[in-house]
Amino acid sequence: MEILPNITIQHYLWLSTALFALGVFGVLLRRNAILLFMCIELMLNAVNIALVAFSKVHGDTSGQVFVFFIMVVAAAEVAVGLAILMMLYRNLHTTDTDALNNLKG
């Protein structure tokens, strides 16, 4: 089950888990909306590492193709999200997510 000499698939999955947990931590901790987007990118990349490791283990190139599709979704998400952020800043003059409480009952 070795990907590299002495490096198994588990090592890569642990790395992926650590990066994913860091992304979750950042999303929960920070209130700046730009930082939230960056942490979402971190989580998507953690998943990408796991996909590439699995594609290496199974000898199947499909995992790498899935990574391309995740990149496509990430790029589209960032483009639309940052446009929303710009509009938010134009209306509220802040990027703090706590300021978005207009729908609070």
Partner: peptide, 29 residues
Amino acid sequence: AAVVSSCSIMLILVSLISKSTIVMGKAPM
């Protein structure tokens, strides 16, 4: 809350990974 929830997600995933066996492919890449 952020520390607790991210650490618990990490704990769950690490225990899942270490408990599970991963099936190898037929041919190496």
